[in-house]
């Protein structure tokens, strides 16, 4: 057996317990794991189901943009890019964008390293792994390309905003109408947009990378704004995740005729 390491190293105070914490430190990792598993299960089911994703004028964010020949009439806001050869539902093509952003997001990294990888499960609770190299090797070294996921996601945010604007049409295609779904889509676009803007890489690119703020007053002010959002990044990550699932669920229910969308005007 290899020599003991970590808190069992020979020079350290000999204490048998893996942690002496008396509070409920397992709450955060457990809750995080439950919410993430629930979300992934829901999103996977919805993405592969390939139906009930469009209820004129609402297109669920899981299927936006809908660009394969399989997309139902009216849902192809951006035209058709992908032919019959695409074997899966159109959502699978699109969901890799938010997925790659969230997988490499600094906040979600914390969340899943703690809750799934238990590295560490909580502060001053020993992790179960013998060796640890962090993000220095493949595949985790790829986390360093997070900013590219952000660039693509920002373009995707523009599309979601476009979808929210389209939701101001009536089901017959006339402008200037609104229903409960419109409101839900607007909030969805706003939350996802704020989530992207509050990103740590965004904060760096906007101005964080500068050594002298005084030489770049505009970027300094933008950095200040992004920094305020950045302080809320974790909350925005959760809020936007829950809301995007709710938005999809709402449109699913409307599209399947389970309930109808209350129209305001």
């Amino acid at each position: 057996m290899a020599a003991p390491t970590g808190i069992k190293s020979p020079t350290r105070a000999r204490i048998a317990a893996r942690t002496l914490r008396t509070d409920r430190w397992w709450l955060y990792p457990t809750f995080t794991a439950l919410v993430l598993v629930a979300f992934v299960a829901y999103a996977t089911y919805r993405a592969f189901s390939g139906q009930h994703y469009f209820a004129e004028p609402y297109l669920t964010p899981f299927y936006s943009p809908c660009v394969t020949t399989e997309c139902v009439d009216g849902s192809r806001h951006l035209g058709t890019w992908v032919g019959d050869w695409w074997p899966f539902s159109p959502a699978v093509l699109i969901l890799v964008i938010p997925l790659s952003l969230r997988l490499t997001c600094y906040y979600y990294r914390k969340a899943y390293y703690r809750s799934f990888w238990m590295s560490p499960p909580a502060c001053s609770v020993a992790e179960p792994h013998r060796r640890y190299t962090g993000e220095t090797r493949f595949p985790l070294i790829l986390q360093n390309v997070h900013r590219y996921a952000l660039y693509i996601a920002l373009a995707y945010n523009v599309l979601l905003t476009y979808d929210a604007v389209m939701a101001f049409k009536s089901p017959e295609g006339e402008w200037g109408h609104m229903g409960l779904g419109t409101l839900i889509l607007v909030v969805n676009a706003a939350l996802l947009g704020l989530y992207s803007l509050s990103c740590h890489s965004c904060r760096h690119i906007i101005g964080g990378r500068l050594r002298n703020f005084s030489k770049h007053p505009v970027r300094y002010r933008l950095w200040g704004g992004v920094s305020v959002l950045n302080g809320r990044h974790a909350q925005l990550a959760w809020a936007s995740l829950v809301w995007v699932a709710f938005t999809d669920f709402y449109i699913w229910m409307v599209a399947s005729g389970t309930w109808s969308d209350p129209r305001f005007f």
Binding site: Y113, S119, P120, E135, I141
Partner: peptide
């Protein structure tokens, strides 16, 4: 400094 070892778990 091995900053790549940090996995930003924020403890």
């Amino acid at each position: 400094a091995g900053i790549g070892m940090c996995n930003i778990t924020k403890c």
